[in-house]
């Protein structure tokens, strides 16, 4: 028993107990996932704001006397007069291989119930992309596994490719097939023990989809063993009212997905 007490004391000892200065403000007006906040002097553009209940907001509109922020998450319990805190951090998301095989939301918080994300690093969402000269030239093909595409319009690693099509024509299927094919190639090379092989990790960003559609896609990825090489970033239609109106939740994942990709080796 005394061992547990000593452990607790050690944990408390490790905790920073010094007094720190915090910038705070009060919600003046809130609605549709957008809050007008008074106070918060010194807050920066794109800085994360901590709302009560662990909800995160993003300072987007800095005015003379107030700050306009979008709320990324559930805002239904927030009300006028609530105190908010500036975090001093620009919007950032966890990155790293700990995200592989996981389903996360716009801020990188887990949605799949598999526990916390094992990631030590974070990466800012708003960052200037490296220039074209700095980027490595395309010198390696990326097989989609679909013979017609690979033969007629081959894709290289690092290239961007847009899939355009009418509804229910198989755009998602092409993307999912590519993810599965890449996972199959990764597994094959892992078995062969090829040290020079660089595995391809896929990031599937599901924006404004029904939960049932996403669940179906996840089931396919899990069944084929491709989920272990994939990160799923989801901002579904049912996430919050903001998702289906002004959609801050659906704007961030694009950047989120791309930054997770940029970090990957």
């Amino acid at each position: 028993m005394s061992g547990i007490v000593a452990e607790i004391e050690a944990e408390i000892g490790k905790l920073k107990s010094e007094v720190t200065k915090k910038h705070t403000g009060r919600i003046r007006e809130i609605g549709d996932g957008v809050a007008k906040i008074e106070g918060l002097s010194g807050v920066a553009l794109n800085e994360m704001i901590e709302f009560p209940g662990g909800v995160t907001g993003l300072a987007l509109n800095l005015e003379e006397t107030e700050v306009g922020a979008i709320i990324i998450g559930d805002f239904t319990h927030l009300k006028e007069g609530d105190e908010v805190k500036a975090t001093g951090k620009l919007l950032q998301v966890p990155v790293g291989k700990g995200l592989l095989g996981r389903v996360v939301d716009a801020l990188g918080a887990p949605l799949d119930g598999k526990g916390p994300i094992k990631s030590k690093e974070s990466y800012p969402v708003e960052k200037i992309a490296p220039g074209i000269i700095k980027r490595q030239s395309v010198n390696q093909p990326l097989q989609t596994g679909i013979l017609a595409i690979d033969a007629m319009i081959p894709i290289g690693r690092g290239q961007r490719e847009l899939i355009i099509g009418d509804r229910a024509t198989g755009k998602t299927t092409v993307a999912i097939d590519t993810i599965i094919n890449q996972a199959r190639i990764n597994q094959l090379n892992e078995k062969l023990g090829d040290q020079s092989f660089r595995p391809v990790y896929s990031i599937y960003v599901a924006v404004g989809q029904k939960n049932s559609s996403l669940a179906r896609t996840l089931a396919v990825l899990e069944e084929t063993g491709a989920l272990a090489y994939t990160i799923v970033v989801a901002a579904n239609a049912s996430d919050s009212a903001t998702s289906s109106t002004w959609l801050p939740l659906q704007v961030v994942p694009w950047a989120n997905g791309s930054w997770i990709t940029e970090w990957m080796p």
């Binding site: 408390i12 905790l15 920073k16 107990s17 007094v19 720190t20 200065k21 915090k22 910038h23 705070t24 403000g25 106070g39 918060l40 002097s41």
Partner: peptide, 22 residues
């Protein structure tokens, strides 16, 4: 202590909340 929008929190509750967050 609060001066304008700056807050210095040295309360036991504040420390417990910090402990809960960590």
């Amino acid at each position: 202590i609060r001066v304008g929008s700056d807050v210095w929190d040295a309360t036991i509750r504040g420390r417990l909340e910090a402990l809960a967050r960590s």
